[in-house]
Amino acid sequence: MIAGLFNYWIVIVLMMAGLYIVMSSGHLVKKIVGLNIFQTAVFILFISMGKIAGGTAPIIDSAITLYSNPLTHVLILTAIVVGVATTALGLAIAVRIHEAYDTVEEDEITAMDAQSLHEENTASLAAESDK
């Protein structure tokens, strides 16, 4: 059983580590790093389930009879592309955030946002009391 499920358990550990980085990290770029790790771990999950003991890469050759599952490979190819696309867009937004806030630490951004929300609210109240 240990041999049969070892791959999956490791994958679970990796996935959770990635997810942990996403959720706990305050640095926006590091969050994306975590996202990347999380996704890569899922890729390994898929590829692991496609492996057949003793099989080979699914490229047809008359000498070979046992191939690993090509479908999971196709799916993960697509998923990798999705991953890099998300990463690129995420980084682009992070860069824009840096330009707008001069920081990419979530705590500081939240504080600034709260500050501007507070200012807006006081402005609203002032406008109310004017009437």
């Binding site: 890729f43 390994i44 590829i47 496609g50 057949i52 099989g55 080979t56 890469a57 490229i59 690993s68």
Partner: peptide, 9 residues
Amino acid sequence: FMVLDAVDV
């Protein structure tokens, strides 16, 4: 992935 036969991946 290589070890798991997923060469393209």
